[in-house]
Amino acid sequence: MKTVLLVFLHGFMGTDNTFDQFPRHLQNELRTELGCVPGATGAAGSRNGLVEVQSVVYPRYATSGELAAAVESFLSWLTNTVIDREVAKGTRSPVVDPSVAVVLVGHSMGGVVACDSLMAATSASPAGPTVFPHILGVLCFDSPLLGLAPQVVAHGVLDRGVSKFNDLRGVAAGLPLGAVSSFLFAKGASETTGTRSADANRARGRWKLAAGLGAAAAVAAVAGGALYANRDKVAEHMDWIGGHLAFAGALFEPRATLERRVAGASASAPVAVFYTSVADSTDVRKMLGRRTFCVVPDHGAQPRLGSWTEAANTRATDEIDAHVGMFNSGTNPGYGPLVGGARRTVLGWTTEFLK
């Protein structure tokens, strides 16, 4: 019996509950389409004994540090997960003739991790068409593979990102703006030395600048000695900020670099992106039409950069709400069609594997 394994990866600072009931709903719809029925133990079996569909959520991981480290950890976990299933099945040659095929499903930055993992698996495999684990494709949900839409950076992320900076208020409430910014930027400069790549340092530096300005504005108010007296606490907050922003720094690479990443993944296996959109209701900007969380390629570039399908949310107030509420049927009126679109995409990928 062959197994189609759906593997879900959350995004930036996500949790095991990011996908809500989506994994179960997608799994059940695929089981219905493929003729699967519950087995005696509750596992998915098949009427003809040929196929089963399983889903697993990759355990919550740290979205901090370098993206490459997250990719390496995930690919190691995925390889072991697939090997365990192949051994349990008694598969004679899981590399040449696998009985388990994987569909990677990523939300937000989880899609970036999935695409990079696909390329890493391809490059680590021997020359030829065989790749282990056998990855049928990558489903990305609102993954900023080509970067965040500019208006999200300008109006959404910065507004919602100040909560961590606000923690510094208790450390140095009222500290003069100049003293705070000098401390933050000095720390940021010192942290760019070490083992980080030049590109990662540039991305980290851009985030550090924004973080420094936000933090300085948040704590500007009291006395000069408080920051130094509580320097360990301040360092803790800045390490948290810097680590997480280094992970997301991959979104701020040049557009050509981002396109090469997506094209590389698409050359290894199909990549399908479902991206949210909201209508702009403000009088000044309504003429701009839909607003998206992530940058969307022109239609002419999509074959090379995977397939991109709009998933409009008519209830969301802004791009961030649409992004985080994508898998909630109560906040996303388009949830049903989203499950259906994912089901049809995966079914198309399984045809060759299930022959």
Rank of each mutant, 00 (worst) to 15 (best):
L118T: 11
P126Y: 08
G90I: 15
S117N: 10
V112H: 00
S143Y: 04
L136H: 03
G106P: 06
S123H: 13
T79E: 14
V95D: 07
L145D: 02
T130M: 06
V138K: 01
D116T: 11
G90K: 09
N80Y: 05
T91C: 12
T122M: 13
V102H: 06
L104K: 12
I135A: 04
V100Q: 13
A124T: 02
A88R: 14
G110I: 10
V105N: 07
A121D: 10
V113Q: 13
I83S: 02
S123V: 14
V102R: 00
T130A: 13
R92D: 06
F132M: 09
A101F: 05
T81S: 04
L118M: 12
E86A: 08
T81Y: 13
V95T: 11
L78H: 10
R92H: 15
S125G: 10
G128V: 08
L78P: 13
F141I: 13
P126M: 05
L136Q: 02
P94N: 03
T79R: 10
G110M: 09
S123L: 11
L78N: 08
P129V: 15
G137E: 08
S99A: 12
S117T: 15
L118P: 02
D142H: 01
T91W: 03
A114T: 04
G137Y: 04
E86P: 06
P98N: 13
V103N: 02
V105R: 07
G106A: 10
D142S: 11
C115Y: 03
M119K: 01
T81M: 11
P144M: 00
P133R: 09
L104R: 07
G137M: 07
G147R: 01
E86V: 09
P94S: 01
